[in-house]
């Protein structure tokens, strides 16, 4: 009899687990657990992040850069000077985005494409990999065109491999090996190709505010300073505000990577901001 009770007890205890067994029967989705949202915006500060606008999303960006903070009260510490870049980013596919923009002071039109090759997977592939390519066209005026004018000389390019890893839910780090190519250089002995290595990251301070930083180290043909930028991302529903300080006022990669003249220690610091607004097209 005792044995009988034992068996009944054993069986009933197995019934108590029945629901857990049912849960175990449910297929765990075989889709990898992708890590997303590595950065708030498609740019860290000036440089591209591994984020793309989502498929079918049009993002309108307004970027402003003011003069240097050390330009004195007469210029309201740089606020009197302002340059702007307007651009549109569009997500064609989840992994493919294009953008077009124009910078005011340099009079450069830029076109950019971003292709995401790999995504970071939880307990799997360690990084998100994105290819970024941009082409720049410097505008000209017909009455200033000289005899030896060649259209190709107005063009320059940037190509980057962006590798980013979300270390934890707040911290993301990115490496950006970069080539900038100029069709036209100032001196004959100058190299047309400029290699550099960018590092950047963001640290979330709250759910809605993060601290971002980026730095590009020029590996060859270094004629100017390396760029260092610090900024905050502030998210308010449909907008992302990015406020930042940098030693370059340029907003296109080729310019701020190879042609930065400002020095942080001398106070050549430019204040700027980016505002982006997204529209869902379909």
């Amino acid at each position: 009899m005792r044995r009988f009770i034992l068996i009944v007890a054993l069986l009933t205890s197995s019934f108590a687990n029945a629901q857990d067994n049912l849960l175990g029967m449910l297929a765990v989705s075989d889709e990898p657990n992708y890590i997303g949202y590595l950065f708030k915006g498609t740019k860290i500060v000036n440089a591209q992040s591994v984020e793309l606008p989502a498929q079918g999303v049009l993002q309108f960006n307004i970027q402003h850069r003011f003069g240097t903070l050390n330009s004195g009260i007469y210029n309201l510490y740089g606020l009197d000077f302002s340059q702007v870049r307007l651009s549109f980013d569009y997500g064609i596919e989840d992994w493919l985005a294009v953008s077009i923009g124009r910078s005011s002071s340099l009079k450069v039109i830029d076109a950019n494409s971003k292709i995401r090759l790999k995504r970071q997977v939880k307990e799997g592939f360690p990084v998100t990999i994105v290819l970024n390519s941009a082409a720049y066209l410097k505008q000209w005026q017909d009455n200033q065109v000289q005899e030896y004018f060649v259209f190709a000389n107005q063009l320059s390019y940037t190509h980057q491999i962006l590798l980013a890893r979300k270390i934890n839910r707040d911290l993301t780090l990115q490496l950006s090996p970069t080539i900038v190519h100029y069709n036209l250089v100032e001196m004959q002995k100058e190299s047309h190709d400029r290699y550099s290595l960018g590092i950047g990251g963001r640290q979330k301070l709250t759910q809605r505010i993060s601290l971002n930083a980026e730095y590009f180290y020029q590996l060859n043909e270094r004629r100017n300073n390396n760029i260092l930028s610090l900024g905050f991302d502030i998210e308010t529903g449909g907008h992302v505000f990015q406020l930042h300080l940098s030693n370059s006022p340029a907003m296109i990669d080729s310019e701020f990577i190879t042609q930065t003249t400002g020095e942080w220690l001398k106070g050549d610091i430019y204040f700027g901001f980016n505002i982006s607004r997204v529209f869902t097209i379909y």
Binding site: L26, A27, Q55, T280
Partner: peptide, 27 residues
């Protein structure tokens, strides 16, 4: 969404992945 129902014990279990929710706006 996945679910399983045992008609003998009447046990019913549902499971879903939060990241599988699709919104009209990606933001």
């Amino acid at each position: 969404v996945s679910a399983v129902f045992d008609a003998t014990s009447n046990d019913l279990v549902f499971q879903l992945r939060i990241s599988d929710f699709v919104f009209p706006k990606s933001l």
